[in-house]
C-alpha cells in the first residue's frame, strides 16, 4: 500500500498523462502557424472514424463467447440505430435504447 504522498504523486502522473494526450496536438500545430495539409486532411476525416472507434470501445468488455454473448448489447445498439434512422430524435433514440437494455439485462437475460 502506498503512503498518501505516493498516492498524490501517482495521481499527479495520471493527470499529467491525460493532459499531455489532450494538449500535444495543439502544441505541435499551433493556431498561428499554417497546419500541414496532411494534418488538415486528418482533421477532416478522423472525426467520423474516431466516433466509430468510440462505438466499438463501448463493446470492449463484452464477450461473444461467454455470458450473454453480447446479444443484449448488439440488439439494443441496433434498436437505438434503427430508431434514430426512423425518427431522428437524439433523446428518444438514447432513452429507448437504454431502457430496452435495462429491461433486457434485468428481466430477460439474467
Amino acid at each position: 500500500m502506498m503512503t498518501t504522498e505516493q498516492q498524490v504523486i501517482t495521481i499527479g502522473m495520471i493527470i499529467l498523462g491525460t493532459v499531455l494526450t489532450r494538449f500535444i496536438p495543439f502544441w505541435l500545430f499551433p493556431a498561428d502557424k499554417p497546419t500541414p495539409a496532411y494534418i488538415q486532411y486528418l482533421g477532416k476525416v478522423l472525426p467520423a472514424a474516431v466516433i466509430g472507434l468510440l462505438v466499438i470501445y463501448c463493446f470492449k468488455d463484452v464477450s461473444l463467447t461467454a455470458g450473454n454473448r453480447g446479444i443484449p448489447e448488439l440488439l439494443c445498439a441496433g434498436i437505438t440505430m434503427l430508431l434514430h434512422f426512423w425518427k431522428r430524435s437524439m433523446l428518444l433514440s438514447i432513452a429507448a435504447g437504454t431502457i430496452s437494455y435495462m429491461v433486457m439485462v434485468q428481466m430477460v437475460f439474467q
Binding site: T10, M13, I14, G17, T21, R22, P25, A31, L42, L53
Partner: peptide, 25 residues
C-alpha cells in the same frame, strides 16, 4: 508505487485523445 508505469499506462489508455485534438484543431 511506480509513477513511471502510471504515466506510461495513462498515455496508452488515453492515446485516443491525440485524434480528438487533431480533429478539433
Amino acid at each position: 508505487f511506480n509513477p513511471v508505469q502510471a504515466l506510461l499506462l495513462t498515455l496508452m489508455v488515453n492515446a485516443r485523445h491525440l485524434f480528438y485534438g487533431i480533429s478539433m484543431l
